[in-house]
Simulated assay, not measured.
Amino acid sequence: MDHRHLGSSGMLVSEIAYGNWLTHGSQVEEDRATACVRAALDAGITTFDTADVYAATRAEQVLGRALRGERREGLVISTKVFFPTGDGVNDRGLSRKHLMESIHGSLRRLGTDHVDLYQAHRFDLRTPLEETMEAFADIVHAGKAHYIGVSEWTAEQIRRGHALARELRVPFVSNQPQYSMLWRVIEADVVPTCEELGIGQIVWSPLAQGVLTGKYLPGTRPPAGSRATDRNGGARSIGDFLRDEVLTRVRELEPLAAAAGLTIAQFAVAWVLRNPNVSAAIIGGTTPEQIRENVRASGVRLDPALVAQAEKILSPVAETDPALTSAETPDRRP
Rank of each mutant, 00 (worst) to 15 (best):
L75Q: 10
I313W: 02
Y54T: 03
Q201E: 11
L253A: 06
R227M: 08
E167A: 15
D138F: 00
L302W: 05
L256N: 00
Q27M: 11
S237H: 13
A142T: 10
L247N: 14
F241R: 11
G285Q: 14
R274G: 05
A310H: 00
E30Y: 08
V173E: 03
P177E: 05
L107T: 00
E187M: 14
F83I: 01
Q290S: 09
H121W: 01
R32P: 06
A323C: 04
M100D: 15
R333G: 02
I282Q: 08
T127H: 11
P206I: 05
P276N: 10
G86Q: 01
Q309D: 15
V203R: 12
R109H: 03
E73T: 06
R169T: 15
F172N: 10
A228L: 11
P128E: 00
Y147I: 12
P304M: 12
T220N: 06
E289T: 08
L324C: 10
M100E: 15
A208Y: 11
V250M: 10
T325Q: 15
K80A: 11
F136E: 05
V170C: 06
E196H: 15
T287P: 00
A208Q: 09
Q27P: 09
V140Y: 07
M11Y: 09
M181P: 01
R184K: 15
P288Q: 05
V272D: 14
A163C: 11
D87P: 10
L75Y: 03
A327G: 12
Q266M: 05
T229I: 10
S205P: 01
R236F: 13
T132P: 01
D31I: 14
G105L: 10
V53S: 03
Y118H: 08
R92C: 03
A265I: 04
A281K: 06
G74K: 11
V37R: 00
G143A: 08
T286V: 13
V307R: 08
R243S: 15
M1V: 12
V76C: 12
A259L: 13
R249I: 06
P316Y: 09
V300S: 03
T248N: 04
A265P: 02
E101C: 01
V89K: 03
T46P: 09
V150C: 06
G74W: 03
A55G: 04
R292Q: 07
L207P: 06
H104S: 15
E152Q: 14
E130M: 13
F82S: 03
P255V: 05
A297M: 06
V28T: 07
E187D: 14
G69L: 03
H104A: 07
T220H: 12
P171Q: 05
E319V: 03
G239L: 04
R126W: 10
G261I: 14
S315P: 10
H114Y: 04
A120W: 06
H98G: 00
P255F: 14
W21C: 09
K144C: 11
E152T: 02
T127D: 07
P218R: 14
D2P: 03
L256Q: 07
R301M: 02
T248G: 09
A258W: 07
A308G: 00
Y216H: 08
E73P: 07
V28A: 12
E252F: 08
Y118I: 02
P128G: 12
E196G: 13
